[in-house]
Design a protein around this nucleic acid. Structure first.
Lengths: 226, 226
DNA sequence: GACACAGTTCGGCGTGCGCCGACGCGTCGG
DNA sequence: CCGACGCGTCGGCGCACGCCGAACTGTGTC
């Protein structure tokens, strides 16, 4: 009974094309069916079938707009699920990930669904802990000082949401933890809106000069990386 | 490159027989290959092949003992991964789950890999929060009072482990959260060792009379349920 | 040493499903 | 109004893989 449900849900991710689409969608943006087809390397008709199946399984949601069909991840929980699965897949083959330039870029700064990851993401976690904005006594918590600094930077702290404010998320390349949750999501959207960073191709993030001051307030010295 | 890894890992869970085996193994015990074959309803030879595949993928570990091969979940992280996946599978079809007697039993008390779940699991979370053993200000934390009570009950609080002491885990039947993590795991193993509860068939847990006093200390009044 | 039994390997069978190309439909642009 | 384009549906092809039974290995039992 319920056992086949697990298999069905896993089967949806078990296809290389659908898996590629899901990983692409982890950047948090809405992709068209055609873009997903190119990303996965299949015909548009095939991609359309895959999107239907992902939608039926509750992994993605889609909205029609003119002649385009925009597809995005249905829910942050789904994004976490896929991240966890990819993480389990990733930590076995140590592989030569650290080679291509594009990967190098992703190592430095990228998005993990709706928050920052990569070197910068890890540094953000370190910085917020070091400056006392976040406390980690068996579970992560935002301190009063943390709330103050975020307020001054114009980052809204969501209230009354079921989503945890702060969660640890094991990093794909760094093999260390970065911050996930409602607060880091809010930090990223503020950073984009304020021109501190810009979202680049795929999941890469470009750090702009304007980031120096606000990121310093968060305990991240960008000059340390280059 | 990395995209096919995700598909490969999902494909391992995508088979109904392997999925059934994994769900069975979530009770935390070591099963023989033959037992898994019967649980999944396939021939022993087929089950053997499935176990090989699960082992290669890092989902299970196996040890040979005499002419038996004992199989268990490789790692708590894997157990959580499967729980998350099953959870995503479960919350769509509302279905008439609440029918059979066996399911009723599982609703009341069962294991979620290595800790208590079901009605009792949820009550444990409520009780430990209400009695001030656990604090939940943006993240769960064990209080000093909590450490004291656990100490008096003979429950060891693991130290120096990477695993979080307390995590929330959304419950399958109750649709509410119960406690996961190192501390709840320790509570369950102590409860079994001390004869407060016994592990029953499948994932069911039988609450014994000796549980009344220690569970009361944890804020759970067993008489409230029957 | 003979037998029973758990597990593994192997060959062969059946089928489910991912793929494409062709076609139809709706939207946008000249 | 007509062509270009994005998307969805359908039919047919081919491969991958889950299944079993038979044979073999290794381990306990009488």
């Amino acid at each position: 009974m319920e056992t086949i449900a697990l298999a069905e849900v896993a089967a949806v991710l078990a296809d290389p094309s659908r898996a590629a689409m899901c990983l692409a969608l982890l950047d948090g943006r809405a992709w068209t069916v055609g873009e997903l087809a190119r990303a996965a390397g299949v015909a548009a008709s095939t991609a359309s079938e895959h999107v239907s199946r992902l939608r039926d399984a509750g992994f993605v949601a889609s909205v029609k707009q003119g002649r385009h069909n925009y597809v995005r991840i249905a829910d942050p929980r789904v994004a976490e699920l896929i991240e966890h699965l990819a993480q389990h897949a990733g930590h076995r083959p140590v592989s030569g990930l650290r080679s291509s330039l594009r990967v190098r870029k992703l190592e430095y700064a990228r998005t993990c669904y709706d928050h920052l990851a990569g070197t910068v993401g890890v540094a953000l976690r370190d910085g917020m802990l070091r400056t006392g904005m976040v406390d980690s006594g068996d579970g992560l918590a935002l301190t009063g000082h943390g709330r103050d600094v975020l307020g001054e930077l114009g980052v809204e702290v969501p209230a009354g949401t079921r989503r945890p404010l702060l969660r640890d998320c094991l990093d794909w390349t760094e093999r260390r933890e970065h911050l996930a949750g409602a607060v880091p999501a809010s930090v990223l959207s503020r950073a984009v809106a304020a021109g501190w960073v810009s979202r680049d191709e795929h999941r890469a993030v470009r750090i702009l000069p304007a980031a120096r001051e606000p990121f310093g307030r968060l305990g991240v010295e960008l000059s340390e990386f280059s």
